[in-house]
Structures are given as structure tokens and as C-alpha cells.
Design a protein around this nucleic acid. Structure first.
Ligand SMILES: NC(=O)c1ccc[n+]([C@@H]2O[C@H](COP(=O)([O-])OP(=O)(O)OC[C@H]3O[C@@H](n4cnc5c(N)ncnc54)[C@H](O)[C@@H]3O)[C@@H](O)[C@H]2O)c1
Ligand SMILES: NC(=O)c1ccc[n+]([C@@H]2O[C@H](COP(=O)([O-])OP(=O)(O)OC[C@H]3O[C@@H](n4cnc5c(N)ncnc54)[C@H](O)[C@@H]3O)[C@@H](O)[C@H]2O)c1
Lengths: 220, 220
DNA sequence: TAAACTTTGTGAAAAGTGGCACAAACTCTG
DNA sequence: CAGAGTTTGTGCCACTTTTCACAAAGTTTA
């Protein structure tokens, strides 16, 4: 095992391998080679081996990897054997969608609190969670051992909410507001910018059109 | 201006700069240096200049960039001076949030149609759009000149919806379902996998001690 | 007008990332 | 048990992207 920095892409791919291994285990397939695993995930055999190489040696020359064993190892590496408590701040359109999404719990992320500043939203029930006033955030974060804060408020309020979350000592923030947050470096921020993804497509379309015009000019 | 290949990351960051420039223009701030712009977007001054450098020379030594001028230039580069018609397929929790979000129109992405397979949702009004039956998709896509399709249905139905969108001749697909789609190569697919983002956080938490030492690279 | 200061634009160096290729390790076969 | 076959783990190389660093260009000051 080398202790070099692990590329972001490796982590993403490990989740893909894990998903495939879970399927293989279900099908009672006991061993798999990097070539086969790569085939099934549209990745190269070398990529598979290199990714695993960051975390140790899991295979056997000549036969490959034990499905079950590698699956367990990846679950441990990826933190799938643990669960974490999550709070959502801002129960608007997006916040509500997140609150009811079952995919979080399936991945070991339990939403155990929700906060909003709007009096009309406070007290509302969504799944097992009751919307609380933002003023109760510090106490609840600490009492319920919440380690992830999800920001789903308008961009203008995002930094203010981030400050409250940091003060309450969350360890990660998942930020849906389209704005850059400033936080101490020990707090991990993950930005998810839905608009930007769409915007990227508009760049693609604009370029496609430009290219087409250039080609038209050349051909005509 | 050099005509070398523009990194993917550069495009993403240009949108970030543009967002900040729009805010600066609103605040009537006339000029900005790469250092200040970098400060406000959590990026380095060199990164800002390099990114802009792919598209031309926009600044003035000694004083920086004209806010309004750079904003206009970026809008043109990024295709923001055009608008595109968008359809949403699947008006559930996420689809509804997207439908009512005003940020898309502001960015030249007009949601002009929405489709669902559930009879109870059809006919529902959301903003200016009435939810239509999925059967009307081909006709509407063509009539309304829709170039982007957004998939917000459960993973199991995602490929089937993608096939319909491709057949109806959309040029891009934004896919929120956590599954890999197979489409012809002339159709651009952008996956937004919220689950993946969450999974990454659980990895971070599980490996916090190690990751904390290597936190330098998290600007993306 | 000149000197001090600020900031850009960009080559060159550094860092990060993926693919190749092969020795070493192991399995299989007769 | 030897020789043929399979597959891993990793050093090395090619490529991409970011950071560095500084001359050139502009601004400000006196
Ligand atoms: N809805 C979408 O499709 C969409 C798409 C892209 C980005 N976003 C971003 O996600 C964020 C949320 O979007 P939305 O559509 O859910 O907005 P929304 O207006 O529906 O909801 C925002 C919620 O935040 C609450 N709030 C405001 N200030 C608060 C504060 N200081 N503390 C606690 N709660 C506060 C409001 O009361 C409201 O309930 C925004 O930043 C938006 O830009 C949303
Ligand atoms: N809600 C979230 O917070 C969230 C988070 C991460 C990922 N996602 C993903 O986004 C997608 C949508 O999530 P959601 O929470 O909105 O689900 P949802 O169940 O609330 O909505 C899905 C909608 O799609 C419609 N639908 C089903 N099959 C269809 C078909 N063949 N054609 C047209 N419409 C069809 C359903 O009638 C329903 O209205 C899912 O793939 C989900 O995994 C959602």
C-alpha cells in the first residue's frame, strides 16, 4: 500500500466497483479478475488495479479477487459500514425533495433534523422529522450528534447558515446554494450546483451551433 | 488568444466568474482584479487569468478587468446570449422543485414543457407549464423546439425515457437518475448524481484523519 | 516626466492522472 | 513437479491541468 494522495476519481470509481461487486455476490460469483470487473463497469483493467492499489493488496495473482472479501474491504474503505446524522437547513422546494428522498438513508446518511427561518414552515412534519426553528440549530446539532449539514436556502442566506453550522461543529457541509462559501479548512464543503450543470449544457449547445456555422461557411 | 483545447474545468469556472461578475455589476463595482475575483470565488488569481486566457485578452495591466465588459464577454463565450427550450420528464419531488426554480430562466434555460406517466399528475399547472402525458412527448418536443431533456424519473424508467427523448431528437440530456444511460454519441448526456456526492461525504468522514492532512486540493 | 506601484498574460515548471508493460506470484495441467 | 498459462501490483511514461514567476503594460504619485 502506498500512502500517496487518492484521486477524487478513484473514490467515485470505488463506489462503482462496490455496486458491481454487490451484484456479483448476489449472483454467487465467488471470484473476479480486474479485467472482468473493468468490462462490467466500462473501465480498463489497469484502472481497476490502480484504484485498488491506493488502499492495499486485495487480489491473488493468477486468480483475481474474492468477490465477498473485496466487497467488504470497499465497504470499510468507503465508510459504508457506518451511518452519519444529517440536518437540512431550508425546507423549501429543494429541501423538501431531499427530506423525502429515501436514497440518503440507504447510503447510511440519516436525516434527523430540519430547520427553517419561516414561521409558517416550523412544526411541519416530513417523514420522521419535524421542521424546527433555525434558532434551535446549535442545540439540536449537538444533542443529535449531527455531522453533516445540508444547505438548501437561497444564495444570499447561505454564508450565514454555513457560519451557524460551523459554529455548531458539523464536519461537512453539502451546499446546494449557487455561491462560494468560506469556512475553516477542517470543514469539508461539497458544492452541488444544479444550475451549473444545465448551464454547461448551454455552453455545449452554443458551441455546437458555432461549429455548425463554421462548417456551413466552409462548405458553402 | 491561443486555440488549444479548453479544459472542462475552465468552462465550469467561467460560469462561477460570471455569476460573481453579475453580482459585482449589480453592486456597481466597475473594475475587479484577478486576485479579488479569485478571492470571492475561492480560486487562485493565476487560475482566473489562465482560464480567461483561453478565450482572449480582457484585462488591463495595472487596473484589472472592467466588470461589465468581462461579464458581457463571458456571456457570449458561454452561450448566455441565447436561450434554449427545456423539457422535464418526471414531475415528482425533484421535478417539481426544478419546475418552480426561477434560476433557470434567468440563465436562458426556459422550461416549456413537463411530462409524467402518472394520470394524477397530468394537467397539473406549475408556473407557466401544464404537465402533459408522456405520450405527447414526441409532438411537443418537436413543436416547441426543445433541445434539452431533463430526466427526473426513478432509475428503472430512466433508460426508457432517454430513448424517447433521443427519438424525439433532443440534443442534450440532463440525467438525475442514478444510473448510466446509453445514447447515440451525438447526444450529450450530463449526469447529476446526488447520491454520489453524498457517498463521497461518507468516505470523507470515514477517513477524516487521513484526508484532513491532504485537504489542500478541494477547490473544485 | 519619471519613479514607484499594480496587475495582466503567458511560457515554463510542477503536480496530478490514466494507460502500458512486465516481473513476480500464483494456478492449472499432464 | 515442471512448464504453460493467468493475473496481480507497480514503475514508468504520456498527457492534462494547475501553479509559479516575471517581463511587459498600464496606473498613480509627486
Ligand atoms: N429548486 C431548484 O430546482 C433549485 C435548482 C438549483 C439551485 N437551487 C438552489 O437551492 C437553494 C434552495 O432552493 P429552493 O428552490 O428550495 O428555494 P426555496 O425558496 O423554495 O426555499 C428556501 C427555503 O429556505 C428558507 N430560508 C431562508 N433563509 C433562511 C435562513 N436564514 N435560515 C433557514 N432557512 C431559511 C426559506 O424559508 C425557504 O423555506 C437555493 O440556493 C437555490 O438557488 C434550487
Ligand atoms: N428527490 C431527491 O432528493 C433526489 C435525490 C437524489 C436523486 N434523485 C433521483 O431523481 C429522480 C427523481 O426523484 P424524485 O424524488 O423526484 O422521485 P419521485 O418518485 O418523487 O418522482 C418520479 C416521477 O416520475 C414519474 N414517472 C415514473 N415513470 C415515468 C415515465 N416512464 N415517464 C414519465 N414519468 C414517469 C412518476 O409518476 C413521478 O411523478 C430519481 O431517479 C431519484 O433517484 C432524487
Amino acid at each position: 500500500m502506498n500512502s500517496k494522495k487518492v484521486p477524487e476519481g478513484t473514490i467515485t470509481r470505488l463506489f462503482i466497483y462496490l455496486r458491481e461487486l454487490t451484484e456479483l455476490a448476489r449472483l454467487n460469483i465467488r471470484t473476479i479478475s480486474s479485467a472482468e470487473l473493468g468490462e462490467r463497469t466500462n473501465l480498463s483493467d489497469a484502472q481497476v488495479r490502480k484504484d485498488l492499489g491506493y488502499f492495499g493488496q486485495f487480489g491473488t495473482s493468477g486468480s483475481g479477487y474474492q468477490t465477498e472479501e473485496l466487497k467488504n474491504a470497499l465497504e470499510k474503505i468507503l465508510g459504508k459500514d457506518k451511518t452519519w446524522n444529517v440536518a437540512i437547513v431550508g425546507v423549501g422546494h429543494l429541501g423538501s425533495a431531499l427530506l423525502t428522498y429515501p436514497g440518503f438513508k440507504e447510503r447510511g446518511l440519516n436525516i434527523v433534523a430540519a430547520f427553517d427561518a419561516d414561521a409558517r414552515k416550523i412544526g411541519k412534519q416530513a417523514k420522521e422529522v419535524t421542521v424546527q426553528s433555525i434558532d434551535e440549530l446549535p442545540g439540536t446539532i449537538s444533542d443529535k450528534k449531527i455531522v453533516i449539514g445540508v444547505i438548501a436556502v437561497p444564495a444570499k442566506q447561505a454564508q450565514e447558515v454555513a457560519d451557524k453550522l460551523v459554529k455548531a461543529k458539523v464536519e461537512c457541509i453539502l451546499n446546494f446554494a449557487p455561491t462560494a462559501l468560506t469556512v475553516p479548512e477542517q470543514v469539508k464543503v461539497k458544492d452541488v450546483d444544479l444550475s451549473r450543470e444545465l448551464e454547461t449544457l448551454s455552453y455545449f449547445l452554443a458551441n455546437k451551433e458555432r461549429t455548425r456555422q463554421l462548417i456551413d461557411q466552409q462548405t458553402s
